Simulated scan of single mutants.
Amino acid sequence: MATIYDVARLADVSAKTVSRVLNGDGPVGARTREAVQDAMAKLGYVPSNAARTMRSNRSGLVGLITGAITGAQESARPFGLPDLLIVQGIQRVMASRDMTLMIADTGGRADRVPHLVRTFLEHRAEGLIYVAEYHQQIRLPQVPDATPLVLVNCFDDAQSPAVLPDDRQGQHALVRRLVAAGHRRIAYLTLRADMEATPLRTAGYQDALAEAGLPFDPAIVRIGYQSDEEGEMQLLWDAIDDLLRLPEPPTVLCCGNDAMAMRVYGILRSRGVRVPDDMSVAGYDNHRIIAETLYPPLTTVELPYAAMGMKAADRLMSLIAGQGREEPAPTLVTGPVLWRDSVVERRAATLQSISL
């Protein structure tokens, strides 16, 4: 392996001159610089980043811990949007800042996280990012105060800087748009009650109803999500059966995620209920492989994962620079409502009935 002294001999300069070219910390003539660079290219010389890191106390490295890689390989069914989109958003910002992102996958094992944190610190990572697969509370091992940490799609008791989806505002925006389209009986098939998103989205749902002067009816709010596919299908069958038998059934079903909405389409069609002519359906996530390929295409709310990743990377870079340490946590990111053909506009019919 070539050394700095080999480069100096071939370029016919001193080792000090080669060092100046590498580090940009002293004046070097254009011809001399070109001679040194040519010598490095001919010898295949690779500068020692470790040595420069020790001198500058900057490594240019950021450590990211995620389960996205394993999750993408092992998932047999689509759960919302893969958190890999968060990683892509982070990478986009890091590349623009000339930082190197080191990514470690947990393999679905929480007990690996302390080892991964320690490994990144041993490699002198300037900051750490932890990405969770869905909005949840987590517990991480103690990270030195000198190493900035940002959480994405999760939060902890230590009030670490965090970037989260604004679940309450997302559901509020969807229901408000449904009301504007003329719907007055809006059912909500929620995720599990123990998931952080559920009470937040339910609150957003109620906010929009109250804003429109519509009553909240607990009879049209049902849990529609379970971890196993077979159990979820039965849960949805029962919920939809009960909703359709109500004296005043809903005109639209809001689903906790797009995968649930896909199953709702199937259940409704098996019962001879047309989407959206007889029943409108809306989802949550904007999982495009579902939302854009269903027929009719699915109205949904985008989980802003790419934007969350970019926001988290910006937040970490500010912390590394010694800025923004007093900013409140967490940072909430809102995604837009994507209005597609799975929801029928009832305004024209409503106006016609009023005029008659």
Rank of each mutant, 00 (worst) to 15 (best):
M1L: 12
A2F: 05
T3Y: 07
S14A: 06
S19T: 09
V21Q: 06
N23W: 00
N23Q: 10
G24N: 10
T32M: 04
V36D: 06
G44F: 09
V46H: 10
V46G: 00
R55W: 03
G63C: 04
I65T: 12
G67M: 07
G67N: 14
I69S: 14
I86N: 00
Q91N: 14
R97K: 11
M102N: 11
A104V: 09
P114R: 04
P114K: 06
H115Y: 12
V117C: 12
G127A: 07
V131F: 02
Y134S: 14
Q137S: 12
R139N: 14
L140F: 02
Q142M: 05
V143H: 01
T147H: 06
T147D: 01
V150C: 13
D157Q: 15
S160C: 14
P161T: 04
V163F: 03
P165H: 09
D167C: 06
R176S: 15
R176L: 10
R192I: 03
M195E: 12
T202L: 14
Q206C: 11
A208W: 00
A210G: 07
E211Y: 02
P218A: 01
V221P: 12
S227A: 10
I240G: 03
C254M: 08
I267D: 09
S270E: 15
S280I: 07
A282Q: 02
G283W: 01
H287P: 01
R288L: 00
I289C: 10
I289F: 10
I290E: 02
P296F: 02
T299H: 07
Y305I: 01
Y305Q: 15
G309R: 00
M317E: 13
S318Y: 09
G324N: 06
A329N: 01
L332M: 11
R340Q: 13
D341Q: 15
D341Y: 04
S342L: 04
Q352Y: 07
I354M: 09
